[in-house]
Amino acid sequence: MRKGIKKQFWLSKEEADDLKSKAESTCLTEAALFRMLLKGYHPKEKPDMYFYDALRQLSYIGNNLNQLLKKANTLNFIDTPMLLKEIEAWQKFRSDIERRFLQPEKSDVKWQ
């Protein structure tokens, strides 16, 4: 349970509906969304199923690359530095996708 100072706000029906809708679209509670916005972050909406399918496919490819690398090291017949480079590129790509679709962005908007 979060310990801190309780604040209460009055919102119009339209504002309350907007807050609820935005919290649902980001899969956050209204309080969590408010705290993120207060800290200058703008959370992203939950990605569609295409994103998760692409992520699963990337994981599958990555696992295959790792298996290939193990086989290459064991049998010594594949260019291991090349495979390592490919795995590193794949990991960067996966990280970029996660950052693009899941991580909140820091905002430069200053409170007036």
Rank of each mutant, 00 (worst) to 15 (best):
E15A: 12
E15G: 05
E15V: 03
A16E: 13
D17M: 10
D17R: 13
D17H: 07
D17Q: 11
D18I: 06
D18V: 03
D18H: 09
D18E: 14
D18W: 08
D18S: 15
D18C: 06
L19P: 05
L19D: 09
L19H: 08
K20M: 05
K20D: 12
K20W: 04
K20V: 04
S21F: 09
S21T: 12
S21P: 00
S21A: 14
K22Q: 11
K22C: 09
K22N: 15
A23E: 07
A23N: 06
A23T: 06
A23D: 06
S25R: 12
S25F: 02
T26M: 04
T26D: 01
T26W: 03
T26Y: 01
T26E: 01
C27H: 07
C27D: 04
C27T: 02
L28N: 03
L28K: 00
L28V: 01
L28G: 01
L28A: 02
L28D: 02
T29V: 05
T29P: 10
E30P: 09
E30W: 02
E30I: 06
E30S: 09
E30Y: 03
E30N: 10
E30V: 07
A31V: 06
A31P: 01
A31C: 06
A31R: 11
A31K: 08
A32G: 03
A32L: 03
A32W: 00
A32R: 06
L33W: 07
L33E: 10
F34V: 11
F34K: 05
F34N: 05
F34C: 14
R35C: 07
R35D: 07
R35S: 09
R35Y: 03
M36L: 11
M36Q: 14
M36S: 03
M36V: 00
M36T: 00
M36P: 01
M36D: 04
L37D: 04
L37E: 09
L37W: 07
L37I: 08
L37H: 06
L37T: 07
L38N: 09
L38Q: 11
K39D: 08
K39S: 11
G40T: 05
G40M: 08
Y41M: 08
Y41V: 01
Y41F: 15
Y41T: 00
H42K: 13
H42E: 15
P43A: 06
P43K: 02
K44H: 00
K44E: 00
K44L: 14
E45R: 11
E45C: 11
E45A: 14
K46D: 01
K46A: 14
K46T: 15
K46Q: 06
K46C: 12
P47T: 04
P47W: 13
P47L: 10
P47E: 13
D48V: 00
D48F: 01
D48Y: 01
D48I: 00
D48A: 02
M49P: 00
M49F: 02
M49C: 01
Y50D: 15
Y50L: 13
Y50H: 12
F51S: 10
F51L: 08
F51P: 09
F51V: 10
F51K: 12
F51A: 09
Y52R: 11
Y52P: 06
Y52N: 09
Y52T: 13
D53G: 04
D53E: 14
D53H: 05
A54L: 15
A54R: 15
A54Q: 15
A54C: 13
A54T: 15
